[in-house]
């Protein structure tokens, strides 16, 4: 359905925007390494079915490979700043202070409590869904502290938020048309969309309105 296609495209666009911004400006100002590392972990634990005989579609396969590869690539790209621009890297590390072990532990507990079947793949799948729902928190925390985000364009956040928002409509659509409902994905998805709303609100308040006052 269209909600899902545009949701996925919006997710693709967000990654493209982030990569383009970092590569073209050679700046990582305002980007949370922890959030990007968590996203890489999310895809690594969710798409393990790539290595089983479970086949959904070519679309599904290609998207999974892309999300896995791009999320790992972003982490590598950010790590390169460690030697390429140590001052910028150090500044990021100093600001990126959210304690992610709470998120990892919480997601693991949620994965163990709520899953479709008690198998390693299913528990890791559930873990990845819960982790994705909170992975933006280090970024949110960093932004609310500094109020600066040159590399994080409004487009990146908008595209990510739109992706989650469209997925909710996708689930409503599938519930109505296929009587299909994935309770874990829906509950975690609503949590995640709420996180993004907050992120967008802070971004608007701190970055857009904050910078507007400094314009020449």
């Amino acid at each position: 359905n269209l909600f899902r296609i545009f949701g996925d495209l919006s997710h693709l666009a967000s990654i493209g925007i982030l990569l383009h911004t970092v590569r073209s400006t050679q700046s990582i100002d305002g980007i949370s390494f922890k959030t990007q590392a968590l996203y890489a972990l999310v895809f690594m634990t969710r798409y393990l079915d790539l290595f089983t005989w479970h086949w959904v579609s070519l679309y599904n396969f290609l998207m999974k490979v892309f999300f896995l590869a791009s999320s790992v690539y972003i982490v590598v790209l950010l790590q390169q700043f460690r030697t390429k621009n140590p001052i910028a890297y150090k500044e990021m590390v100093l600001q990126d202070t959210f304690k992610i072990h709470f998120l990892l532990l919480g997601s693991l507990v949620a994965g163990l409590c709520f899953h479709h079947r008690f198998t390693l793949l299913e528990i890791l799948w559930s873990f990845s869904v819960w982790l994705e729902s909170v992975a933006i928190l280090p970024q949110l925390f960093m932004l609310s502290k500094s109020g600066r985000a040159q590399s994080l364009t409004v487009h990146y956040i908008f595209a990510l938020g739109l992706y989650r928002f469209l997925y909710i409509f996708n689930w409503i659509w599938r519930y109505v048309s296929e009587a299909r409902v994935d309770k874990i994905a829906v509950v975690a998805g609503i949590v995640q969309t709420a996180m993004y709303s907050d992120f967008f609100y802070i971004y608007y308040k701190k970055v857009i309105r904050g910078n507007a006052g400094n314009l020449p």
């Binding site: 579609s57 998207m63 999974k64 009587a179 299909r180 994935d182 309770k183």
Partner: peptide
């Protein structure tokens, strides 16, 4: 009847 699905989403 509502069914719990396979993971066919991303």
């Amino acid at each position: 009847y509502v069914h719990e699905p396979e993971h066919d989403e991303l």
